[in-house]
């Protein structure tokens, strides 16, 4: 009877241990997969942000701050990659998530800058358009009022000096 009880306890303990280890392994594998996914997402976002940054022409103080923040995110991603290699998946996830959030904020900021740049461009192009229109009207006016009459006058002057001599046919007087 006592032996049976001991055996029963032993079997139960082994089953429990196996269950716990399998659960832990499952969680570990899940964390690994999650860390890999988030690192990949953060790396992709970094590429997007870099492409957006490269399109900015005016690199002012505000943009320089953004570049510094992007670099900070890059360092976080690299730390996450290192932690992933060291199998510290939880900390790796944390770092990658931090980088991802930071990069999403940066993306929004760049979008705002681009929007204001587009507005400024529209303003500049509109001014150029209006000035060009005025210049065109000015030229037309100048041509009609000044150049064309001057040309006509000059033509009349030149032709006025012409002397027309008719060739006389043989035998005519």
């Amino acid at each position: 009877m006592r032996n049976k009880l001991v055996n029963h306890v032993l079997v139960c303990s082994i089953t429990l241990l196996l269950f716990i280890s399998f659960t832990n392994y499952g969680t570990f594998a899940q964390s690994e997969e999650e860390a890999e996914q988030i690192i990949q997402q953060a790396s992709d976002k970094l590429k997007t942000v870099l492409s957006m940054l490269e399109e900015i022409r005016d690199i002012n103080t505000e943009v320089r701050v953004i570049i510094s923040q992007t670099d900070n995110s890059l360092q976080l991603i690299n730390e996450a990659k290192q932690l992933f290699r060291d199998a510290q998946y939880d900390v790796s996830i944390q770092k990658a998530n931090q980088a991802l959030t930071q990069l999403e904020d940066i993306e929004e900021e760049i979008a705002k800058i681009n929007e204001s740049t587009i507005k400024e461009s529209w303003l500049i192009y509109s001014i150029i358009g209006v000035v060009s229109a005025f210049a065109t009207f000015g030229f037309v006016f100048l041509f009609i009022k000044k150049i064309h009459p001057w040309y006509k006058r000059k033509q009349i002057e030149e032709y006025g000096n012409l002397e027309i001599i008719y060739d006389r046919k043989h035998g005519e007087k």
Binding site: L50, I59, V63, R64, I67, S68, T70, D71, L74, Q75, N78, K81, Q82, R85
Partner: peptide
């Protein structure tokens, strides 16, 4: 060192 060890984004 691994490829990612020394990386940096710099402003011009």
């Amino acid at each position: 060192y691994s490829n990612e060890t020394y990386e940096k984004i710099l402003a011009p």
